[in-house]
Amino acid sequence: MTMQRFKPHLPWITLLVLTAVVGVVDPNFLRPANLLSLAGDIVPLFIMALGLTFAIYIGGIDLSVQSMANMITVIASIYLASLGAWVAVLCIAAGFGLGMLSGFLTTRLFVPSFISTLAVGGVCFSVAQWLSGNRALNMDAEQRNATFGWMIGHTGIIPNELFLGAALLAICLFIERRTILGRVLKAVGAGEPAAKASGINVGRYKMLAFAISGALAAMAGLLFSVKLSGGAPTIANGFLLPAIVAVLIGGTPLTGGVGGVLNTLIGTLIVAVIRASMLYLGIEATQQQMLFGLVLIAAIALTIDRSKLRTVK
């Protein structure tokens, strides 16, 4: 078997091997209850990575996801009291709109996505600080339970977050596999000039990809604030690195066109297992970020399609 044919299978093999290794070291790790709670905890990160997949799938990047989630935790905490369940609509609309703005800047004004999303992230950070007055906010616990309690409870032994994550994954998978949008995004990722030449309105679809990324980052922020019952302008810091790692290690390369949301599911699970394994193997938490940084470099180096880069800038 050549490396080229082996490559697509690498992510799930990595996941199985890692899980097996940790399972051998500590069999408790493999108890279903433990695995389920582990999976439940990672759902906000998974939702964020799910959205980010679309931005990377078209060969771009979205560096605003973390600031977006931060801002949404603040918005959700403030407006839950006055808007009730409608606050979810507000949050997702804000994420969709700001993602659309990043997409507009990138496609119509030719601002590279890492700069446009960085700038939109700056706007989000300002809004979050302004709305919160730079303080940590708390949700009214009773109202949170009444409105969003279903998100974080348990059904039997299964955490409800998993159903939410599964539903969003199904929607994204449908978009990717069964809609025109999904096909166009694949075409754009595989080769943008060719997609354009075949008469597709590439700009519109790319904007939608960034909008989906923004909307899902907002969803991640909402779930995160419900879990923590509050929000703050920097509460979700530390999400960006594992989210990018999850997408890339799952097998959606930086150059776009291959991979997809299912890969991100596997990638997120790998991130979860790595995090848990540090605990079981007695590695200190302070080493986590450094480790993920190195894993990120390895993942990019392994997945990137160099034939698409004429000069590497």
């Binding site: 771009g60 030719f110 601002v111 960085l118 706007v123 300002s126």
Partner: peptide, 28 residues
């Protein structure tokens, strides 16, 4: 704290102004 937002807007304006639209066909 309005600074970050304003800077975000400024940087976009600066990049747009410095982009020669005849030479760039698309941005990633």
């Amino acid at each position: 704290y309005l600074q970050d937002g304003l800077l975000g807007v400024l940087v976009i304006v600066a990049v747009v102004l410095s982009t020669d639209r005849r030479l760039v066909s698309f941005a990633k």
